[in-house]
Computed example of a mutant assay.
Amino acid sequence: MNVTRIWTQGRPHTNEYVMEYTISYGTNGQDYADYKESGGDKMMFRGNSDGDTVHKNEFEVPIIAQWIRINPTRWRDRISLRVELFGCEYDAYDMYFNGSSLLKYDLYREPIAALRETIRFRFKTTTPNGVVLYSRGTQGDYLALQLRDNRMLLNINLGFNEVTSLSVGSLLDDNIWHDVVISRNRRDILFSVDRVVVQDKIKGEFQILNLNTGFYIGGVPNIQEGLVVVQNYTGCIENLYFNSTNLMYEVKEALQYGESYKYQKVNTLWTCPEPQIVPVTFKSHQAHARLKGYEGMASLNSSFAFRTYEDNGLMLYHAFSGSGYVAVSFVYWKTSV
């Protein structure tokens, strides 16, 4: 569902109401993402001032989700909340890429030469690196969007032979849907992941982006200028819009009505399968698994399910590169962080 606004009330004829809350959302009822401000912090929504008045909040960027979680942070007397959500149906056109896949849109017949454009889409993945979007022109222009170490990296060049790089997001390989927006107006560029925004001025004097070879989604057939990762993307991409055109929908229509010459579709699926769950059994008190860590991250996110007959045990441990650590354990069947 595409959720656009939320109305709240407290308990009628009382002083029991929620004054402030945050919102998280998801698609499977288990994994949730926080609705964030443009600076990256959780957005705090203003609630009610009495039990009867309706307070209305609108989402500047709609929430696309099946599950909505409201997390009260301040309230009067007791947490009492009546809620109504407003929105509309959401049509999802998904495509899955397996690391050897790509989708190519042929720009030889319809080259792009524009002062402004907007690209927006959703993605989810469990892989920290991969080429997401790529296109270039014969005059040296290119646009390269890629996942690198769990962050989204955009390299863009308007033919000035000097690249402009923007990076946003963290821990994006969590298998949760993330929203991406790239909006350019001449040399002004806005890059957003999950409403966290970075803006910059593209280097050089040129203002037009010229792309006239191919527009690649999910990977490239060989190494290209502007790319810093070598592997193709693994995961799902949903409703990729170039300006007002949903390319995923266009591809499906073209293949159905005999205009497939515009597109080259390699090893992709019209679905978004969930990653296979691989259970691991630790057979002794000394058994453990050591995974590669990440440096320079502002946050850490981990989730897992477990079962055991033991009454004590250390389940997760990570030492920070500076000082301190985080440990998840259970002692007499109670979990502790």
Rank of each mutant, 00 (worst) to 15 (best):
G99F: 08
T14A: 02
L269R: 05
V180A: 02
Q286I: 08
A305R: 15
Y233F: 15
N71Q: 04
E20Y: 01
F304C: 08
K334G: 05
K36S: 10
F242E: 07
A92Y: 11
D188R: 14
M315T: 00
N222W: 15
S101R: 05
G99S: 07
F304K: 07
T27I: 13
I6G: 03
L171H: 01
L316Q: 06
D34R: 08
Q224M: 14
P273C: 02
I277M: 13
V328C: 07
N98S: 09
G130S: 04
S336Q: 12
T53G: 04
Q276Y: 09
E20K: 03
E110M: 11
F320W: 14
S336C: 10
M1R: 12
W75D: 01
E253M: 15
G214I: 04
V163E: 15
Y25H: 09
C88Q: 09
N155P: 01
Y90T: 05
A114V: 12
M19A: 10
Y325N: 14
Y216Q: 09
I6R: 04
R186Q: 15
E250F: 06
Q231Y: 01
S167F: 07
N243C: 08
S336F: 11
V83L: 14
Q199F: 14
D194A: 00
V280A: 11
D173Y: 11
I68V: 03
T126Q: 12
F160N: 10
G324M: 07
R307C: 05
S299F: 01
A287Q: 06
I217K: 01
F160W: 11
D94F: 05
L85W: 13
I189V: 08
N71D: 05
G214F: 04
Y35P: 00
L133E: 02
S260L: 01
L209T: 09
M315L: 13
T245L: 15
N15W: 00
H178D: 07
R82W: 06
R11N: 08
A114L: 10
T271P: 00
N239Q: 11
D77R: 14
R120D: 12
L143W: 06
S183K: 12
G219Y: 05
Q231I: 05
K334E: 15
E295K: 07
Y249Q: 12
G322T: 09
F97E: 04
F320T: 06
N267R: 14
T245C: 13
M315R: 02
I64P: 01
R69N: 06
F59M: 08
Y263H: 06
Y249G: 04
K283D: 15
G47P: 00
Q276D: 13
Y32Q: 07
K201P: 01
S80A: 15
V18S: 02
T308D: 02
M152Y: 03
R307S: 08
V197H: 02
V230R: 14
V132R: 01
E162W: 05
Y263N: 03
S299N: 05
D31I: 00
C236I: 13
V251M: 13
M43E: 06
L115R: 12
Y241L: 12
T234A: 00
M95T: 08
Y317H: 15
N267A: 11
M315S: 01
N98W: 09
T14R: 02
